[in-house]
Write a protein that binds this DNA or RNA. Structure first.
Ligand SMILES: Cc1cn([C@H]2C[C@H](O)[C@@H](COP(=O)(O)OP(=O)(O)OP(=O)(O)O)O2)c(=O)[nH]c1=O
Ligand SMILES: [Mg+2]
Length: 1097
DNA sequence: GTGCAACGCTT
DNA sequence: AAGCGT
DNA sequence: GCAC
């Protein structure tokens, strides 16, 4: 047999065309198999199938059945002992938990129970549109009832469907609050601040808005509070559950000011919270399935349970009521049974001794009940019940016994089936074979054609094969040497066809509410492919250029050696390298070692990348955080090469052109004379980067070298003492610099004089942002913007400190930068893996600082980690963000943006004629490298823009450009109701812009680009364009200017206005200021025209 | 001591 | 209510 | 973190 088998493994007995190869099948083999088959069958008369059946039966009875029996009985033997231990163990666990909470909670209940008559509060009227006096009066009415109850923690006006409703419990951001700044000694509220739906303070209401994002700032007399939104609620007691900060005092007349810890919940809220914690702990005790745990007090009122059965429910929302559940009345059936039995035995709620009972519940289930009494400090006591259904305890054993029985039966049957199958598959073909042989001995070869059906049992198959061959050879020898046609042997199996690599792309998309969301499994394989396409995973053959800056020669040598030992080649010029490796973190500094204008810029990796390559013999993918992003500098290089002033090509000059040219038309005309400033900028911008500086750049460099030679030579004479160094000198601000805080009155070109410094400070800004330190980030951003607009390189920290926006801390950093070329804090950030990974996470659409930090905190270090662990919990937006991440990561050139704008124009033409499309965002500001494509679209006829967003997005989807819609909002229509709302001073909720953020497939590259579509009615167009041209910091500055005013070019603007992308409003009257062009807005705000290219604050 | 832009969608 | 994105 |  063994011989036959090995022979069979060799390819085939037949040629490809099916002809028999004479002499390949050895006669010896044939003989062996033949004699095996015949002789053994004769001597042993036991049929093979009987033998197999017998084996099966023996196996079943000796192994499977005893195994089942032993398991079954053993499990029952120890039940009693286990049960006793278990019941006690449960009781002890529960007692521990109860003991932990009982005293605190009991104290709270005692305070709470003092005659709170919440029903009276609820009987007070619900009111609409009260004026301030009426509101105040009503609040005082409330106060008289609520006065004694510090436990109710808030109230206010709730906006429900546009109506004002008075409520208790702060669930919305609308209401009243009290200002205690006027008289910190007051024990009653003397001054209310009313914040109603229009978010504005009203007549008589006042002065300060106590808003504390940071509780540490709250003074001892702090009253009122807010979420991180607008100050809109009235607090009476404790802070709100999830806020970081809250109210310390009641503001009701007569309620004494008491000092409470900020952030510590009090009153009803604290009880609710504690009860929830308590219940959660019970829930987390490890118990048998369906075990019910309940705790009730000396009155039989349930305090907590381990399930969803309600305990004492303190509702702090509108209504502020609370409900109780009696253990023996309206509780869960098992609890009720336990409580009733306990009462019966003890004649009351007081439990004399621990109880262990077995009872049958109403549902027929037998229960093991454990009852324990837990004493609180003082007179009160609680009872703990643990009810274990017999089913959960013994049921599992019965279940497994049943399973064992079923499995043994199945096994036995399977064995019988196997015997039967063997009979069919082995014995029958063998019998047939024998028959054929017998025929053959009679020179009857007719059975040859019946041998097409081959056995699937290998050995049998081979026998058939060999026998067939033998018969065939005999037949052919006997007949006229004619070649026999035969089919290919089944020994050579058809090759398995490879799976289509992209098979998974079919059907991975689910459509959810019209959006497309990839499933997690798809995302994983997708990312594996897209993110790890590194062509050379090892160092072998890689050309590496190591920038020597910041590396001591030894380290440099060591690195080079290590890399070379792994097969890399160290090259001496960056342009010969596949990868550049550097310790530098600043793109500006790196760019001095690399020709950014060359067509192929090698990726720049950090040392960590090389170290990993060497260590693991395998290089990690060249993606952040292991790489340095050079885009800012590439942008600059591209700009130097062929700078075209953007405004002449954007086709949206109307937004700032003169007013007398009538309706908006897409046009390629140059800007009208009414905006001379912009024209001047365009011209000068072609002459060089310093275009907007009134005193020419050469003057600066003269100044610069003058002071350098003075200061520097002096300092070097005195052996370079810090005191004489230039960076210590008290240098006056550049006289042409407009040293103001408002970005809107300064000029912020893309090309400026402090790029290296700005780059480093930007790192810190970003780090602050990711760490959730928004205000700190803002300060860095303001300093950065000021430095961008500063008309020459900063030379000393004292000079820098004079700039508004640069304070002590940043000045110190600038000093360090001037002295050493780097800022340690920035270096640390740039090399911190926490920062690199969290910012990597946060670069995904839908993932912000909180989520990024959260993921990092959970130990995830890569997107793969996240998908593995959080795949199922990711929101649809984040899933889309991850799917689009490889595309969105890639920046766009101006050409890319223009290509998309052309497509949009074409699609718009398909909807109607006359649409105006203005590319805004960074593109309009002249950026060479853009993260996305922002466009504002309008039409001279307002009606045409009404349903445009729907039409446009549908058209883009239909034409295959858009698959993912990340954000969709139609805003509101400009209708009568809205006009009324405006008049009545309510929040003006009409004529917002409608917008959609989409993933847009760029035809030429196939890359999905983020395209933000903003649809604006013609009347809002100027504001929309101004609001969407940015930069972000410019927009914030603009809004501040509108709000607070300032002085620009000798003109004073008083402020009191409100700017948003849908309009400019008078803060006092809420009336819209009608503007037709961007220039109108600047003029109205008494600002000089700011060309878009100078808005890169 | 207090403000820091303002808005709206998704979860 | 919080998080996020513009 | 800075300015008013
Ligand atoms: C991010 C952001 C943008 N905007 C406005 C101004 C922005 O220029 C405009 C578009 O936003 P973005 O597209 O985020 O920014 P950008 O176009 O200036 O830069 P890039 O796309 O190259 O990264 O929206 C705000 O008003 N506030 C913001 O927080
Ligand atoms: Mg943009």
């Amino acid at each position: 047999m063994a011989d036959v088998e090995s022979q069979a493994e060799s390819p085939a007995y037949f040629d490809r065309d099916g002809t028999l190869k004479p002499g390949r099948a050895t006669s010896g083999n044939v003989k062996t198999s033949k004699s095996d088959g015949t002789s053994s069958g004769r001597l042993l008369l036991i049929p093979l199938n009987f033998l197999l059946l017998a084996i099966s039966i023996v196996a079943a009875s000796t192994i499977v059945v005893p195994l089942a029996a032993i398991t079954y009985s053993a499990s029952y033997q120890s039940v009693n002992e286990i049960l006793i231990v278990l019941r006690n163990n449960y009781a002890i666990q529960v007692e521990d938990v109860v003991n932990k909470h009982i005293n605190d909670l009991q104290a709270m209940f005692s305070n709470m129970n003092q005659n709170l008559d919440i029903q009276n509060v609820l009987k007070l009227p619900t009111v609409n549109n009260l004026n301030l006096t009426e509101q105040t009066r009503l609040m005082f009415a409330y106060s008289s009832i609520l006065k004694p109850h510090s436990s109710i923690f808030s109230g206010g006006w709730l906006d429900s469907a546009g109506k004002h409703t008075l409520f208790i419990g702060n669930i919305n951001r609308t209401g009243l609050y009290c200002n205690y700044y006027i008289n910190p000694e007051a024990t009653a509220c003397e001054h209310f601040i009313v914040t109603s739906l229009n978010l504005e303070k009203q007549e008589g209401a006042i002065i300060h808005q106590p808003r504390y994002e940071n509780p540490m700032r709250a003074p001892a007399t702090f009253v009122g509070g807010r979420w991180d939104g607008d100050p809109m609620f009235l607090n009476l007691g404790g802070p709100q559950p999830s806020a970081l900060y809250g109210i310390r005092w009641s503001q009701w007349p007569g309620v004494p000011l008491t000092e409470e810890g900020v952030g510590e919940p009090t009153g009803a809220h604290s009880i609710t919270q504690n009860l929830m914690e308590f219940s959660a702990e019970l829930k987390h005790l490890v118990t048998m399935a369906n075990t019910v745990i309940a705790i009730w007090n000396q009155n039989g009122v349930i305090i907590a349970t381990n399930g969803d059965h309600p305990g004492v429910l303190y509702n702090t929302g509108p209504g502020g009521s609370y409900t109780t559940v009696k253990a023996d009345e309206n509780a869960n059936e098992y609890i009720k049974l336990g409580a009733q039995e306990a009462r019966k035995i003890n004649g009351g709620w007081d439990l004399a001794t621990p109880l262990s009972l077995d009872r049958k519940a109403a549902d027929g289930e037998k229960l093991f009940l454990e009852l324990r009494s837990i004493k609180a400090d003082g007179a009160s006591f609680w009872t703990a019940l643990i009810a274990i259904p017999e089913r959960s305890l013994l049921g599992t054993m019965r279940e497994s016994a049943k399973k064992v029985t079923i499995i043994s039966t199945v096994l036995a049957i399977a064995m019988l089936a196997l015997a039967a199958a063997t009979s069919v598959l082995v014995t029958r073909p063998m019998r047939n074979l024998t028959q054929s042989m017998q025929q053959a001995t009679q020179m009857d070869f007719s059975s040859l054609k019946d041998m097409k059906t081959k056995s699937i049992i290998k050995e049998v198959n081979i026998m058939q094969e060999v026998f067939g061959t033998m018969l065939a050879r005999f037949a052919s020898a006997i007949k006229d040497n004619r070649k026999l046609a035969s089919r290919r042997s089944s020994v050579s199996r058809p090759g398995t066809t490879g799976r289509t690599p992209h098979a998974h792309t079919v059907g991975h998309i689910n459509s959810i509410e019209g959006r497309h969301v990839a499933d997690v499994k798809f995302l994983k394989s997708f990312l594996a492919i897209v993110l790890h396409m590194s062509p050379k995973p090892s160092l072998v053959g890689k050309h590496i250029y190591i920038i020597n800056a910041k590396l001591v020669p030894e380290t440099l040598k060591k690195l080079s050696k290590a890399a070379e030992s792994k097969g890399a080649r160290i090259v001496s010029r960056a342009k010969d390298a596949d990868v550049v490796v550097t310790k530098l973190t600043s793109a500006a500094r790196i760019s001095k070692y690399i020709d950014l204008k060359s067509a192929m810029i090698p990726p720049v990796a950090k040392l960590g990348w090389l170290e990993q390559c060497v260590e693991k013999e395998e290089c990690p993918a060249l993606v952040p955080p292991l790489t340095v992003d050079l885009t800012p500098c590439i942008e600059e290089a591209a700009k130097d090469a062929n700078y075209i002033p953007p405004a002449t090509e954007t086709g949206c000059k109307r937004a700032y052109s003169d007013t007398e040219t009538g309706p908006i038309i897409i046009s390629s005309r140059s800007p009208s004379p009414a905006s001379p400033a912009s024209k001047r900028q365009h011209i000068s911008s072609t002459t060089g980067p310093k275009n907007w500086i009134s005193s020419d750049s050469e003057v600066h460099s003269d100044l610069h070298s003058d002071e350098l030679s003075d200061g520097a030579s002096e300092s070097s004479n005195s052996e370079g003492s810090d005191g004489d160094a230039e960076y210590e000198r008290n240098i006056a601000l550049d006289p042409t610099y407009n040293n103001v805080a408002y970005e809107v009155v300064r000029k912020h070109p893309l090309d400026h004089h402090n790029k290296e410094l700005v780059e480093q400070l930007s790192l810190i800004e970003k780090q602050r942002e990711i760490d959730g330190e928004a205000r700190s980030a803002l300060s860095y951003r303001r300093a950065i913007s000021a430095l961008i607009s500063y008309p020459r390189k900063i030379r000393s920290w004292r000079e820098a400190k004079k700039i508004k926006g640069v304070g002590d801390k940043i000045a110190r950093m600038i000093r360090e930068y001037l002295k050493t070329g780097t800022i340690q804090a920035a270096e640390t950030v740039a090399n911190s893996s926490r920062f690199l990974i969290t910012s990597h996470f946060a670069s995904i659409y839908g993932v912000g600082p909180t989520t990024a930090r959260d993921w990092y905190g959970k130990g995830y270090r890569s997107l793969e980690d996240v998908l593995d662990a959080e795949g199922d919990t990711l929101s649809n937006v984040v899933k889309m963000g991850i799917e689009l991440f490889p595309d969105f990561q890639q920046k766009m050139t101006r050409k890319d943006v223009e290509e998309i704008v052309e497509v949009l124009k074409e699609v718009l033409r398909g909807i109607a004629e006359g649409f105006v499309i203005c590319p805004v965002g960074g593109y309009r500001r002249g950026k060479e490298i853009n993260g996305d494509c922002d466009v504002v679209i309008t039409h001279p006829e307002e009606a045409k823009t009404k349903n445009l967003l729907r039409q446009l997005v549908d058209a883009l989807k239909a034409q295959g450009y858009v698959k993912h819609v990340l954000w969709y909002g139609e805003g509101h229509e400009k209708d009568q109701v809205s006009e009324l709302r405006l008049q009545s001073g309510k929040k003006n909720s009409f004529d917002h812009l409608s917008k959609a953020f989409t993933g847009f497939r760029q035809p030429s590259t196939g890359i999905n680009r983020q395209v933000d579509l903003i649809i604006s009615p013609q009347s809002l167009y100027a504001c929309a364009v101004l609001g969407w041209t940015g930069s972000k910091q410019f927009e914030r500055g603009l809004r501040n200017w509108c709000k607070y005013g300032g002085v620009a070019a000798g003109h004073t603007f008083k402020g009191g206005y409100h700017f948003a992308s849908h309009g400019l409003f008078d803060r006092r009257t809420n009336k819209r200021v009608h503007v037709e062009t961007e220039e109108d807005i600047f003029k109205f705000l008494k600002l000089e025209w700011a060309d878009p290219t100078l808005r890169n604050a």
